[in-house]
């Protein structure tokens, strides 16, 4: 079935089964590989994208559920004020190690700051505990979110 998806401001037409996870549409069909596959079960957050500004796990988001929602991925999150501030903070505080989970980390953090511009530690715990980092960059993720938020 053909779906027209609004991704990072541009329409994309894809012909896949309706139950195909958005993750694989982005990565394999459209070649946008910044969004990562980590677990396939919404347990790690590596595949986080935004639907109308809300963080969702694209590995558990069937393409037929997206509808007219605006999809934003890591490739375009820098065009939002939260995304730009977070990417800058990530660089200033040298958050990344292997980097594989960081697309999802930044997407979750951007959704957090959009709703909660001045997050507390417990806000950060709640918003970010769905995102796994096996390198253990959590100290710097927390610090960078605070740095970006100016708290």
């Amino acid at each position: 079935m053909v779906f027209t998806l609004k991704i990072n401001g541009a329409p994309h037409e894809v012909d896949v089964d309706g139950d195909t996870p958005l993750l694989w549409v982005l990565r394999d069909v459209l070649g946008m590989t910044g969004t990562k596959f980590g677990c396939g079960q919404a347990l790690c957050g590596a595949c986080t994208v935004h639907l109308d500004g809300q963080a969702v796990r694209s590995c558990q988001t069937p393409v037929d559920s997206v509808g007219d929602s605006a999809v934003t991925t890591i490739e375009a999150i820098g065009q939002t004020p939260q995304g730009a501030a977070l990417q800058k903070a990530w660089l200033e505080l040298e958050v990344v190690q292997c980097g594989y989970c960081q697309s999802g980390q930044i997407m979750s953090a951007a959704a957090l700051l959009k709703d909660t511009p001045k997050p507390t530690d417990s806000d950060i715990d709640a918003a970010m505990s769905g995102n796994v980092c096996r390198c253990g960059t959590y100290h710097r993720i927390r610090a960078a979110i605070k740095h970006a938020a100016g708290v």
């Binding site: 946008m32 590989t33 910044g34 969004t35 990562k36 596959f37 991925t73 890591i74 490739e75 999150i77 820098g78 977070l86 990417q87 990530w90 660089l91 040298e94 958050v95 990344v96 980097g99 594989y100 960081q102 697309s103 930044i106």
Partner: peptide
């Protein structure tokens, strides 16, 4: 500063996958 940070915050970094 790390030489690989910039590409790891905006999705440009290429892993095997």
């Amino acid at each position: 500063k790390r030489v690989d940070s910039a590409i790891k915050v905006d999705g440009r970094a290429l892993y095997g996958i």
